[in-house]
Design a protein around this nucleic acid. Structure first.
Length: 256
DNA sequence: TCATCCCTGTGG
DNA sequence: CCACAGGGATGA
């Protein structure tokens, strides 16, 4: 469920609660998470809370607790008591606990000495490298943007929004993009993601995304194509196709 | 590069 | 009953 903007929102909201504080104990309610947290030695101070792609990095003294929320995971900060929903893991601090709530049980947690994942660059800063990278791939551009090894953090919603902003048909092979189209993409990627972060992410009508203190996202009202019936720009009916097994929304008029 | 699987719940 | 849901790892 959460893509980069949602994960970034979670990290920013959580940071003042746990950075510098001492993690005292953990309690796994889902046995599937036990192997991942076994190597964790406690108590340990939280040095830093960070994000890389869609991963949440809780950097401790002797390693990093790596959390991925996948489709339905949420991190909830609780001063006391328990949150609603299926709690899979609790991280206990003296002043409260951080709980992983996850309806579909797809979220992952693991403690590692060093964070190492095959992730592409962050989708910010100078993205001119896209010109060379895209020229090498026959993948549909939408599938390419979703591939975390190529560029980190973009998911199904924002891939659709980015391609709409750039005016590019998601089915186009990556290497078929003209220089001008890649330039539009280079501009659209950080623009869309930064606007979504400013809106504190997207909370869809039936979805459970919210920040750790319960705050809902606000970017859903700005979605141009994802989940839409007609194009917000030209009124043309939005097309929905499958690319790389995922629902893909686009405007056949605005995106060529 | 693609289908399949993981897991659970909801809605048609 | 089946399709679908914002994630990614895996093996063909």
């Amino acid at each position: 469920m959460p893509e980069l903007p949602e994960v970034e929102t979670v990290v920013r909201a959580l940071r003042p609660h746990i950075e510098g504080r001492v993690l005292e104990s953990t309690e796994a309610y889902d046995p599937a998470l036990l192997p991942g947290i076994k190597p964790l030695s406690l108590p340990a101070q939280v040095r830093r809370l960070a994000r890389r792609g869609k991963y949440i990095l809780i950097e401790l003294e002797k390693g990093t607790l790596v959390v991925h929320l996948r489709m339905s995971g949420r991190l909830v900060w609780c001063k006391m008591g328990v949150p609603e929903g299926r709690v899979r893991l609790a991280l206990r601090f003296p002043h409260g606990s951080l709980q992983l709530v996850d309806r579909r049980r797809l979220a992952t947690v693991e403690f590692v000495k060093k964070f190492e994942k095959p992730l592409g660059p962050e989708p910010f800063g100078d993205l001119s490298w896209l010109l060379y990278a895209l020229a090498k791939s026959r993948m549909p551009i939408k599938a390419w943007l979703l591939d975390q090894r190529k560029i980190a953090g973009i998911g199904n919603i924002y891939a659709a929004e980015i391609l709409f902003r750039a005016g590019i048909d998601p089915r186009r092979p990556a290497r078929s993009l003209t220089k001008g189209e890649v330039q539009r993409l280079v501009k659209a990627i950080p623009e869309v993601l930064e606007e979504a972060i400013a809106g504190r992410g997207t909370t869809l009508p039936d979805a459970e995304y919210r920040a750790p203190t319960g705050e809902l996202g606000a970017f859903q009202v700005k979605l141009a194509v994802y989940g839409q019936k007609v194009c917000q720009a030209c009124g043309t009916p939005i097309w929905r196709v499958k690319i790389a097994g995922r629902s893909t929304y686009f405007c056949p008029n605005c995106q060529r």
